Amino acid sequence: MLRNLAAAVLTLAAVTVTVTPAEAIPRLVPAADREIVFTADGTTAYGTLHVPKHQAGQRLRAALLLPGSGPTDRDGNQPPASSPDTLAQLADALDGDGIATLRFDKYGTGRTGLGAYRSHPEQLDYPAFVRQARAAYESLRDQPETDPHALLVVGHSEGAMTALLLGSTVRPRPVGLALLQPQAIRLLDLVALQLKAQIAEATRQGQLTPEQQHTINAAVTAAVTSLREHRPADTTDLPPAIAQLFEAFQNLNARFVESDDAVYPPDTAAGLRPGTKVLLTCGTNDAQVPCVTTNALTTALRHAHTGGPGRVTLPAVDHLMHDANHPNTLAPPVRDALHRLTRH
Rank of each mutant, 00 (worst) to 15 (best):
V9R: 10
T235C: 06
N253A: 12
P30Q: 08
G110A: 12
R228V: 08
L297E: 14
A128H: 13
H326F: 09
D85L: 11
G47P: 13
L330A: 06
A300S: 12
L297M: 15
S119Q: 09
V19M: 08
G113L: 14
L102C: 08
V257G: 02
T281Q: 01
L179K: 00
G308C: 07
G155L: 05
R111K: 15
A133N: 02
A133C: 04
L140A: 00
T44P: 02
D286A: 08
Q89L: 15
L2T: 12
V17S: 11
V9K: 11
L12Q: 13
A269H: 05
P332S: 11
P290Y: 03
P182Q: 07
A8W: 05
G68M: 05
R61I: 01
T215P: 00
T342Y: 15
K277V: 08
A56C: 01
L94A: 12
P240I: 10
G176V: 06
A6G: 11
L190Y: 00
L102I: 07
E247H: 15
A178W: 00
L177D: 04
P265Q: 05
L179I: 04
A116M: 07
N251E: 13
P127M: 07
G310V: 06
V153T: 13
D261P: 09
D95C: 14
S119C: 00
T112W: 02
A6Q: 13
A243R: 01
S82C: 01
L164S: 12
V289N: 08
A24P: 02
D260H: 10
D105P: 13
G307H: 02
R131Q: 13
H230V: 11
P80F: 10
T294V: 15
A287L: 08
V51L: 09
T298I: 09
A222D: 10
E247Y: 15
A7F: 06
P240T: 12
S83C: 10
R204A: 11
L2A: 04
L102S: 06
V191N: 08
Q143Y: 09
A202D: 15
P274R: 06
I242Q: 13
L140R: 00
A233P: 06
A262L: 07
A31D: 03
A8N: 03
V175I: 14
L227R: 00
Q183L: 12
T11K: 09
D92P: 00
L114P: 05
A22G: 07
V19W: 14
N325E: 14
F38P: 12
A223N: 02
S83E: 13
A100L: 04
L5F: 11
T86S: 11
G167V: 04
T294K: 02
S82K: 01
Q198Y: 01
L195R: 00
Y117V: 05
A62D: 02
A200C: 03
T215C: 00
P333V: 10
L341F: 12
A304C: 01
Q183G: 09
M161Y: 00
P239M: 07
R311I: 12
P79E: 04
A254R: 14
A62G: 13
L180N: 05
P240W: 06
G159L: 12
E145A: 09
Q132G: 13
A6L: 14
E201I: 03
A93F: 13
F249Y: 15
P327H: 07
L124Y: 01
